[in-house]
Simulated scan of single mutants.
Amino acid sequence: MSNPRTEALSQAGVSIWLDDLSRERLESGSLAALIAEKNVVGVTTNPSIFAAAIKHGDASYRQQVAELAADGHDVEHALFEITTADVAEACDLLAPVAAATDGVDGRVSLEVDPRLAADTAATAKEAVKLHDKVGRDNVLIKIPATLEGLDAITATLAEGISVNVTLIFSLERYRAVINAFMLGLEQAKENGYDLSLIHSVASFFVSRVDAEVDKRLDAVGTDEALALKGKAGLANARLAYQVYKDLFTSERWKVLAAAGARAQRPLWASTGVKDPAYPDTLYVTGLVAENVVNTMPEKTLDAVADHGDVTGDTIAGTYEESDDVMDALAAQGIDYNEVVGLLEADGVAKFEASWAELIEDVREALAAASATGARS
């Protein structure tokens, strides 16, 4: 039996994806249980998630590392093999969901090396390499929405590869992402691909916006400023949904839809609250609308299942109020463009740091495995 609260969220049009993956979660049946009991229909990963999984990993990681060390593989190849293996297994587990939803859900996301975020050609090349290695139709390749990433998004979609666009913070960049998506589909059509088989989500980050804006509001310190705390994240995301509704009813989109294209769904990311003063389901129950994804860490998912109050659409009718929030923030001296620019740079830097940690952990594991093999 599925949880009634997560079931209500699903019935309201929100696809629940888990923001976590590990081999232990796959082998223990933990992910399968979340699919069966809490309406999980997809998985997202990132360098931080893989770093935690491998650092605290089980015997199967150690066995694979030992085999890779014995074959003389370097750390980059080992990391590629480990992460794609986990994603392929998760794709297989979610394959029935993908079949039941005609590929809309049942998706597992795998991110390109974040060190390539400023290199368009290298990102596009890595996306193809990851897609081909996983070898599953329900994989999504994650590409960050940096300026350099926009052309890589288009190029990857043009090759018929489904994409999760990540690290979106600003409304302006979100519009550029949608343009890159449509351009990619237009090129894919020219290249002879079946547009109905190409899927995409646009990951719009939420809680990090509040974390940065709230810090600035605290610095202002007035009653008017403090009254705005905890409002920027929801307002920004709700206005992003307005952008989605506007651009996916355009004449340009209608031409693509007539050719079989599927709309790129908004995905709410960074939905675990950073401030314990806020309700732990804030960025879930406050962002309910049709045809969206909410990817949650397990702690947030558990909170929703326990006490999430799902009352239907919580975005429709909020656009004017959300605009007012953004105007009020500007009146308090909060520079929106500065905030979102900082968050994007910080997001890339954090993923790069996690990737460096991941590489070091795998390097140490390879060295230990090689030493053990040499002694035996």
Score class of each variant (00 low, 15 high):
Ala99Pro: 05
Ser200Asp: 09
Ala12Arg: 03
Ala330Phe: 02
Val97His: 07
Tyr61Pro: 00
Val293Gly: 06
Ala70Asp: 14
Thr146Gly: 12
Asp302Thr: 15
Arg238Asn: 08
Glu360Ile: 01
Glu186Asp: 12
Leu26Arg: 01
Thr6Glu: 04
Glu321Asp: 15
Asn236Arg: 09
Ser10Cys: 09
Asn179His: 14
Ser2Phe: 08
Asn179Val: 12
Thr271Glu: 03
Ile198Ala: 11
Thr285Gln: 13
Ala225Cys: 04
Gly103Thr: 07
Val243Met: 11
Val213Asn: 09
Leu93Met: 05
Thr318Trp: 03
Asp323Cys: 12
Gly333Lys: 11
Met326Tyr: 07
Thr222Trp: 06
Ala118Lys: 11
Leu18Asn: 08
His56Tyr: 10
Ala99Ser: 13
Val284Pro: 04
Ala349Ile: 01
Ala70Lys: 14
Ala36His: 11
Val288Thr: 11
Ala53Asp: 03
Leu110Ala: 00
Ala330Leu: 02
Met326Thr: 13
Phe169Met: 14
Glu89Leu: 08
Glu81Ile: 07
Glu76Met: 09
Glu67Thr: 10
Ile35His: 10
Thr281Ala: 05
Glu357Arg: 03
Val348Gly: 04
Arg175His: 11
Ala176Asn: 13
Leu287Glu: 07
Thr156Lys: 01
His131Thr: 00
Ser162Gln: 03
Leu197Cys: 11
Ala117His: 07
Asp151Tyr: 06
Gly106Glu: 04
Ala158Gly: 05
Glu352Asp: 09
Tyr336Gly: 06
Gly286Glu: 03
Asp313Met: 02
Ala88Met: 00
Glu344Met: 14
Ala330Thr: 10
Lys215Gln: 15
Leu140Gly: 02
Val139Cys: 03
Gly272Pro: 03
Asp210Asn: 14
Tyr283Gln: 11
Asp102Trp: 05
Gly221Phe: 02
Glu320Cys: 01
His56Trp: 03
Asp74Glu: 12
Leu226Val: 04
Arg363Cys: 06
Leu68Ile: 10
Ala258Ser: 14
Ala227Met: 04
Ile82Tyr: 01
Thr285Arg: 09
Lys229Thr: 12
Val97Asp: 09
Gly135Gln: 04
Leu239His: 09
Gly233Glu: 09
Tyr174Glu: 11
Gly233Val: 13
Glu159Ala: 11
Phe181Ala: 08
Gly192Ser: 03
Asp71Pro: 08
Ile16Thr: 15
Ala349Arg: 10
Leu68Val: 10
Ser370Pro: 07
Glu111Arg: 01
Gly221Ala: 07
His56Val: 01
Ala211Arg: 06
Arg265Ser: 14
Val362Gln: 00
Leu167Ile: 10
Lys55His: 08
Ala90Thr: 03
Asp246Ser: 12
Asp223Glu: 15
Ala124Asp: 04
Ala88Tyr: 00
Ser203Val: 10
Ser207Ile: 12
Val40Pro: 07
Gly184Asn: 05
Asp105Ser: 14
Val213Lys: 08
Leu79Gln: 09
Asn337Leu: 13
Val134Ile: 10
Ser196Arg: 08
Leu147Glu: 15
Ala353Trp: 02
Val348Glu: 01
Val87Gly: 01
Ala180Gln: 08
Thr271Met: 05
Ala303Trp: 01
Trp355Cys: 00
Trp268Val: 06
Asp324Ala: 15
Met1Gly: 13
Pro297Tyr: 05
Pro96His: 05
Ala369Asn: 12
Asp71Ser: 15
Leu18Met: 11
Val201Trp: 06
Val310Gly: 10
Tyr241Ile: 13
Arg23Pro: 02
Ala188Cys: 12
Tyr174Leu: 13
Ala227Pro: 05
Leu366Glu: 09
Asp119Ser: 04
